[in-house]
Design a protein around this nucleic acid. Sequence first.
DNA 1: CACATATATTGTAATAATTACAATATTGCA
DNA 2: TGCAATATTGTAATTATTACAATATATGTG
Lengths: 135, 135
Amino acid sequence: MEKINITLKEKGIKPTYQRLKVLDYMSKNLRNHPTVEMIYEELAKEIPTISLTTVYNTLGTFIEKGLVCGVTITGTEVRYDINTESHHHFLCKKCGDIIDVDVPCSLSGKKGELVDGHKIEEIHGYFKGTCRSCI
Amino acid sequence: MEKINITLKEKGIKPTYQRLKVLDYMSKNLRNHPTVEMIYEELAKEIPTISLTTVYNTLGTFIEKGLVCGVTITGTEVRYDINTESHHHFLCKKCGDIIDVDVPCSLSGKKGELVDGHKIEEIHGYFKGTCRSCI
DNA sequence: CACATATATTGTAATAATTACAATATTGCA
DNA sequence: TGCAATATTGTAATTATTACAATATATGTG
């Protein structure tokens, strides 16, 4: 938990209790790609007064400071990912899980470069289908 | 317009006036990746009685039958694409435009195959950044 | 330590995209 | 033409997210 405190300070984010808890949750649920709702529900067990707005605000701050990133591939909600390295995802149409996949891909590693004259800041790749557990 | 009629029949979709018009719009706006709202606004000029629900229903049917596909990369709304061939996109953070990009990419051409044991049905890749016109 | 100021949290209300649903209209076939 | 199936429309409900104002907390200065 002290590690998380330090991470926040390093990024210039005031380490409040709520922020610590959100980042702690993200760190412990590396492969979850949770929604705001999932984080809120879980934290509310420990912090009954926490508000949904705070979770939104916190994640907004984290994204700004590059601590997490938003994954917008379901079409209905934003999922959050503490792994900010450019990597690819698999979205299961049956269970809704988002899973990291490790594919060598020429899309990777081009930040700052151009495609067709457009300046690249982020690179995203994902598959949709049926995940291993749902087949 | 007759061509569009035939396309609908081939796909087993009853070619109603509204559906013809939606598909016609999509065909004439190949590079737009429009929202439901954009399609609705435009068609409402010619068909004042058309309803937003019809546009949603129509696009839903088109997606089911493989006539168009949904592009869910902005995080706020679904954009529609009449190009159903697997290809990649560029989302401009300034103007919001979605532009097709032609990148050779190992993500392509793997439908039916597996990644990490997950069965692939769709492959998507996109960049975010500043488009050519906004630089 | 106390106070002032800035910043964060909370709760509620507003907005935006989408879906549900029931009434009406249209289509295609016997 | 008439009937059954399907499509369209309008409205209301739902879901995710944002706006905003009041309250609470944290930080820096004397």
